[in-house]
Amino acid sequence: MERRVLLAAGLAGAMQGLGPNPAMAQGAGPALVEKKVFAPGAYRTRGGATIPNLRLGYQAAGRLNATGDNAILICHFFSGNSHAFGQLAANGPMGWWDAIIGPGKPIDTDRYFVVAVDTLVNVNVPDAGTVTTGPASLNPDTGRPWGMGFPVVSMRDFVETQKLLLDSLGVKRLALVAGPSNGGLQAIEWAAAYPDFVARVMPVIAADIDAWMQGWLDIWEAPIRLDPNWRDGDYYGAGREPPLRGLAEAWKIVTLHARDRLWAKQYDRTLPEGQDPARRIGDRFGIERWLDDAAAVRAKTSDANSFLYMVRANQLFLNEHPSLEAAMAQAAPRWLVVPSPTDRVFLIEGVRAFIEVLRKAGKQVETAEVTGSLGHLNGVVAMAPVGERIREFLAK
């Protein structure tokens, strides 16, 4: 569980990703999923650049109905991937929203065709369970990784590449688009981009990316740019070390930002063995040592340039609209907004302001809350108690 919570630490946090196994029809044990790859060829970004060889991983479960309108899209958080449900192997970890997705669960794969996708510029490039296209991918024109020459992509590009996948699968309309944090932002972007394609929207621990949040995102990424090993993104060559120190410091900021004070109480007045900060300035407190160790592990399983590109995609949330109000005016009609009251990333007052924008735009808005000691991360690991609210929302 601790590894799962750590991986979930981005604009929410992390895991892996994949698609359905017919053997699961027998219902014996958790759903086994297989990795699938969507490779449609070239993709033109919203900014006008061309990505010549788009490849994205995805997983799916359930059956698409004859009218193509029982599909649900699950979008992942900042440091996550498409492993939202099921297992990749019999003894492997469960997906990050497995508590609410699967046969007979609130997002019922016996009833719905559920798809989850690895985004562009996914940070989990070293993870074999992630398939993405981004700065660590090979540029076919040079035979070398793109680095910072990779085109800038926005949240809308995440939506457009997902739309290409859904079209290829025969999906005609989404019964629901949902996700936590960065996944919730994608859900909101979907609602604005394709209001007639989306019946329901469920953003969890997400609201608007305003200037205050853009500033926080800049703080998240700053240590990477300060690491001399970053070399303006040119660290993939032989004999060069990746900027692991800067990346670890970045994850440390994200990790603490995504947790609440109640979680940190376990480290009150604790000192690692042999440490005495009152006597030696270089010694560490318990919370500092935990953050150091956790962030160092996370840095080894992610890519620094991809982190920067993911930050920019979040900063470009709804960037094709003049305002949040304008974006929501013509957005999809039905919403279940799920905040965490102790969220330190998307503060509850910001979520309330977002809900007010939706209601003023005439949307049908329901709310539910996720609670617990983990603050922002409640929206990843504490979803089971709101399962019935989700089931009811889908039934309306």
Rank of each mutant, 00 (worst) to 15 (best):
R225W: 05
D260P: 05
V337H: 02
P339K: 09
E369P: 01
P277T: 05
Y267E: 12
H76V: 12
R352S: 10
I72E: 02
I348C: 00
H321S: 13
D157W: 02
D208S: 11
Y236S: 08
C75V: 04
P106F: 10
W290E: 15
L316C: 10
F77I: 09
T130Q: 04
K265W: 12
V117W: 06
P223Y: 04
V338C: 11
I72T: 03
M1V: 10
L164G: 03
W216N: 13
A14V: 14
S181E: 02
R334W: 13
E273D: 15
E160I: 11
T367D: 06
V125Q: 11
I100M: 06
I107M: 05
E34N: 12
Q16D: 12
L226W: 13
A89V: 11
G372E: 01
W290C: 10
A9L: 14
T161C: 01
K35I: 12
R312I: 04
E34C: 10
W290G: 10
L324R: 00
A258V: 13
T270H: 14
E369N: 04
P272S: 10
V152D: 13
N65Q: 03
A178S: 11
G375T: 02
A361L: 05
L256N: 14
G246I: 05
Q315E: 12
E356Y: 10
K35Y: 12
P322Q: 02
M15G: 10
N91M: 09
M202W: 04
V337M: 05
G19Q: 09
T130G: 05
P93R: 05
A39K: 14
V365T: 09
Q162R: 12
G19P: 08
N319V: 01
L308M: 15
V351C: 07
L164Y: 01
I224D: 00
Q315D: 06
R111V: 04
V345S: 06
A207L: 11
V311Q: 13
R391H: 11
V254H: 02
R312L: 06
A331K: 00
A238L: 15
T45Q: 00
F150A: 07
F150M: 08
V5L: 14
H321R: 13
V345G: 03
E34P: 06
D343L: 02
L358A: 02
G179N: 03
A84L: 10
G379N: 02
P242N: 05
Y194E: 15
N91V: 08
T255A: 15
S168F: 02
R280F: 15
P145F: 00
A42D: 10
A128L: 14
A294W: 07
A99M: 02
F307T: 00
A187W: 04
I51F: 13
M328G: 02
F85V: 00
L64H: 06
I101Q: 01
A332M: 04
N53D: 15
S306Q: 05
A178R: 02
A207R: 11
V338Y: 05
I74A: 08
R284S: 13
G95N: 00
D293M: 07
E34F: 09
N65A: 04
E288Y: 12
A299G: 07
I51C: 11
P223H: 04
M328K: 03
D210I: 07
R225G: 08
K105A: 09
H76D: 11
D210T: 07
T119E: 09
D303K: 03
M328A: 05
Q16E: 11
L262E: 15
A368G: 04
G102V: 01
L11C: 12
E273T: 15
K265I: 08
G147F: 06
R284C: 12
P135L: 09
P242A: 08
M328D: 00
A304M: 02
